[in-house]
Design a protein around this nucleic acid. Structure first.
Lengths: 350, 350
DNA sequence: CTGTTAGCGCGTTCAA
DNA sequence: TTGAACGCGCTAACAG
C-alpha cells in the first residue's frame, strides 16, 4: 500500500460524500448524523487515514505549528524555556518547531522568514535582544511581514520589538542581588559582563551597578570584563580578571553558565570558591542547583516564561502588543557566604 | 496589505507565466533565461513574496521538516542530541519540529502520528526503548504507517525497531566503567538503576554487572535500587541506599542527572563525596564537567548522536535499516579517587 | 527556453 | 442533515 488514504477514499468506503467525511472527522460543524459519523470513523480507521495537515494549512492559511527561535538549545536556560513552550503547546494541540541560531542573533530574521514560509501560526523569539540597530531593523521588517500574513509573534527578554513580550526583569533581579551581596559585606566586585551588545547582559550589569551604587559601591571600568555568554566566555573573562585585577572579593557573572566557567577558571589556579573568591550567577538553571558550594544566583522561572509567551500569543486577538513583566528572585548560596559575619539577610538560603 | 503575495502575483508583475516564476524561484530545472529570472526575483522581492511551504508539501507529498521526539528537552542529555540534529538539519535546509513526551514513552506513538499528519520527511526518536512489548508494538505500528507514507525513521538508543538506528553502546561503556572502578579498588557498590523497563538503564546495569563480574565482584539484589531516570529519582534512590544498605563504597548512577541527585542526597546527610562515598554517573553532560569533585562518568558525544541520526535518515535510500554503533569512553574524576592507592589506571583523569 | 494545464487533499461555500 | 463544486498555491507534465 503505497502513499496514503485520502479523505476521498474514506468517503468512498463509508459511502458518503467528501463533505460529510470531512465534517465527521474534523468536527467543524457538528451537523453529521451519528450513524454516518460512525461509518466514516470506522472507514478512516480501516484505511489508516491520516489527515493531511498541509492541505488543511493551505485551506486555512496557517499551520497549527508555532516556531521557536533560541540562541542555543543545549544551553539549559533556553531548553528550560523551550520546555515550557512545548508543554503549553501540547495542551493546545500545537506542534513546535525549533531553530537554534547558535548565538548568531543575525540569523533570527532568517528563521522568522523560514517560519513564514511554513505559514506557522506564531513565532516565539527566546533570546536576548541586541543593541544593534541594523540587526533590530532587519528583524523588525521580517516580523512585520510575518504578522502581515496573519501570524503572531512573541518575544521573551526585552521589549524592543512592537510585539507581545514577556520581559525578564533582569535589572531588578541584578539590583536585588547587588543589595544582598553588599549586605553580606562585599565591596570589591568584578563583573563578567557578557557580550557588549546583548541587552540581557547589559541590563543585568546596569541593575547590578545600580544596586551597588545604592550601597555606596562603585564599579570601575576595569572591574567589568566582557566575554561570551557561555561557559567558555566565563572562563576566559575570569582568567582576565585573575590576571589583571587584584583585591576582588566577589565576582558576578551575568549568567549561570558563565559563573560555572568562572569557577572553573578560579579552581584551575588552585584557588577555592568561596574561600578565596565568592561567585554569583544569574538564571538558576536546574543542573547547577546541586552544585557545592550552592551557587548564589537570581532565579528565573524558565518554564513559566515559555508558557506565558505561548499563552500571550494564543490569547492576543489582534490588539495592541502587550507586555508581561516577570520578576526574578535572589537565591543566596554558599558560593557567597559573606565577607564578614554580618547579620542581615534579605533572602533565604538555598 | 492583507494576506500574502502568491506565485501567481509574482508571475503577473514580472510579466511571465506561473511556471517560469516557479522555476526561477525554486530553481528546480535551471531552464530559465537570465533576464526573466532577474525580473521574477525582483518582482518577488517587491511583493515580499514568501513561498507557501504547505502548497509545496501538498504537491510533493512530504514536508522538508524532520520531527524529533525526546523524553524531556530540559534534560541536557537530550538537548545535546537535539542540538546535533538541529545543526545538521540546518546545513541541509531542513526545519526541525520537536515534541517532548515528558518521560511518558507511551506518547511516542502519538507524536509519530502527529508528524505523519504533517507529512514530515523523517522522524528521529531520541529516547531509550522500553521493554514493554505492548508499547513497542503500538509504536512499531505507527512507525510502519509513517514509513508506508514515504517517511524515514531513525532511533537513537537501542535497536528494537526495524529502522535506522544509532546504537549507544551503553553496555560497553558501563562495563569499562566497572573495570576502571574495580581497578581503583572499589568492591562494594550500589547501583541507582533507573526505571526497570528502560533499556538504556537496563543495559548500563547489565554492562556494569559484567564488568564487575570480570573483576570477581558480585552485585546482590539489594545493591540495585530502581528509581526515576531524573535528578529526583537519583536523590530518592540514594536515600534508600543510605537507609538500607551499609558498607557501600561506590555508587553508580545510570545517568548523570541521577548521579547529581545522589550526590545531593549524600550531602543532605552531612556526608561528603568522595570522602565517605564515591559516585559515578553516565553521559558526561557538559554542565556537570566543572563540578567539584569532577564526576566520574562515561562520555557520550551527544551532538554527534544527533548528527549521525539525521545523516542516516538522509542517506538511506529505502534500503534495509542500518545500525551504527557509537562507543562511549570512561572519564575518571575526583568523585571516585579510588579506595586504596592502587597504581593501575586504564583511563585518563578528567 | 517558456507557457498551459491539471491536479495535490481539504474546507467551505451553496443547493438540495 | 447531506452533497456537489470550487479554489487554496504550487509543481510537474506536456506543448509549443
Amino acid at each position: 500500500m503505497e502513499g496514503n488514504a485520502t479523505l476521498f477514499d474514506v468517503a468512498r468506503v463509508a459511502g458518503v460524500s467528501l463533505a460529510t467525511a470531512s465534517r465527521a472527522i474534523n468536527g467543524s460543524a457538528r451537523t453529521v448524523g451519528a450513524e454516518l459519523r460512525e461509518k466514516v470513523l470506522r472507514a478512516a480507521q480501516e484505511l489508516d487515514y491520516s489527515p493531511n495537515a498541509a492541505a488543511r494549512t493551505m485551506k486555512r492559511g496557517h499551520a497549527d505549528v508555532v516556531g521557536m527561535i533560541v540562541p542555543d538549545i543545549a544551553d539549559p536556560y533556553f531548553s528550560g524555556i523551550a520546555s515550557g513552550v512545548m508543554k503549553a503547546a501540547d495542551e493546545q494541540g500545537l506542534m513546535v518547531s525549533i531553530a537554534s541560531t547558535r548565538r548568531q542573533s543575525s540569523r533570527e530574521a532568517e528563521y522568522v522568514a523560514g517560519f513564514r514560509r511554513q505559514r506557522n501560526r506564531a513565532v516565539i523569539l527566546a533570546g536576548s535582544r541586541t543593541s544593534s540597530r541594523a540587526e533590530t531593523e532587519t528583524l523588525k521588517a521580517e516580523v512585520d511581514r510575518f504578522e502581515a500574513q496573519g501570524g503572531r509573534v512573541a518575544v521573551v527578554s526585552q521589549r524592543k520589538l512592537p510585539v507581545d513580550t514577556v520581559v525578564v526583569e533582569n535589572r531588578q533581579g541584578a539590583r536585588a542581588l547587588a543589595t544582598d551581596l553588599t549586605d553580606l559585606g562585599y565591596r570589591d566586585f568584578a563583573v563578567l559582563a557578557g557580550p557588549r551588545d546583548l541587552l540581557s547582559a547589559k541590563d543585568r550589569l546596569d541593575g547590578f551597578r545600580t544596586g551597588l551604587a545604592e550601597a555606596g559601591v562603585e564599579l570601575s571600568r576595569e572591574q567589568v570584563v566582557n566575554g561570551e555568554f557561555s561557559r567558555d566566555g566565563g572562563f576566559q573573562a575570569m582568567e582576565q580578571v585573575l590576571e589583571e585585577l587584584g583585591g576582588i572579593d566577589c565576582v558576578f557573572a551575568v549568567n549561570d553558565v558563565m559563573a560555572l566557567g568562572a569557577i572553573a577558571a578560579i579552581r584551575s589556579r588552585g584557588l577555592d570558591v568561596p574561600r578565596h573568591l565568592s561567585v554569583a550567577g544569574f538564571g538558576d538553571i536546574s543542573t547547577l542547583r546541586d552544585m557545592a558550594p550552592r551557587l548564589t544566583t537570581v532565579r528565573v522561572d524558565l518554564e513559566r516564561l515559555g508558557r506565558l509567551a505561548l499563552e500571550m500569543i494564543l490569547s492576543s486577538e489582534g490588539g495592541a502588543p502587550r507586555t508581561r513583566r516577570e520578576k526574578c528572585q535572589v537565591v543566596l548560596g554558599a558560593s557567597t557566604p559573606g565577607r564578614k559575619p554580618v547579620g542581615r539577610r534579605s533572602s533565604a538560603r538555598g
